[in-house]
């Protein structure tokens, strides 16, 4: 299968690779997928007190399309509010990267990772308030 130029570009030069401190109360971590399925994404966001995502990092075990989907997601997340971030849909990623049907699950995983990171952050925040 031939990859789109955008997938190759992201896979060769992935943006925002790295790790944020998962114990930081301002950091939300999403870990989705499974090694047995050939895809695992870890996406992290750091949220300012004003509720804006000021940093996003990822690491992905997966094919080029999975790496590109998560790399793109981190680019899109930076500067967005949490509400804006939750509006990112897998179909937006499919469109931007020209993913073929067999790779749509990569974009679904990226959307799941975003949601899971936001949920983790919100959980931490409510725990903090509750404490």
């Amino acid at each position: 299968m031939a990859y789109s130029e955008k997938v190759i570009e992201h896979a060769e030069n992935p943006r925002n690779v790295g790790t944020l401190d998962k114990e930081d109360p301002n950091v939300g971590t999403g870990l989705v997928g499974a090694p047995a399925c050939g895809d695992v994404m870890r996406l992290q966001i750091k949220v300012s007190d004003a509720g804006v995502i000021e940093d996003a990092k990822f690491k992905t075990f997966g094919c080029g399309s999975a790496i590109a989907s998560s790399s793109l997601a981190t680019e899109w997340l930076k500067g967005r509010t949490l509400d804006e971030a939750s509006e990112i849909r897998n179909t937006d990623i499919v469109k931007e990267l020209n993913l073929p049907p067999v790779k749509i699950h990569c974009s679904v995983l990226a959307e799941d990772a975003i949601k899971s990171a936001i949920e983790d952050f919100r959980k931490k925040q409510s725990a903090k308030r509750g404490a």
Binding site: Y3, I8, E12, D39, F61, G62, C63, G64, A66, I67
Partner: peptide, 13 residues
């Protein structure tokens, strides 16, 4: 280990 095969194939295209 820890490197998905197709991801690697793309990296060594």
């Amino acid at each position: 280990s820890y490197v998905e095969g197709e991801g690697l194939m793309m990296a060594i295209k």
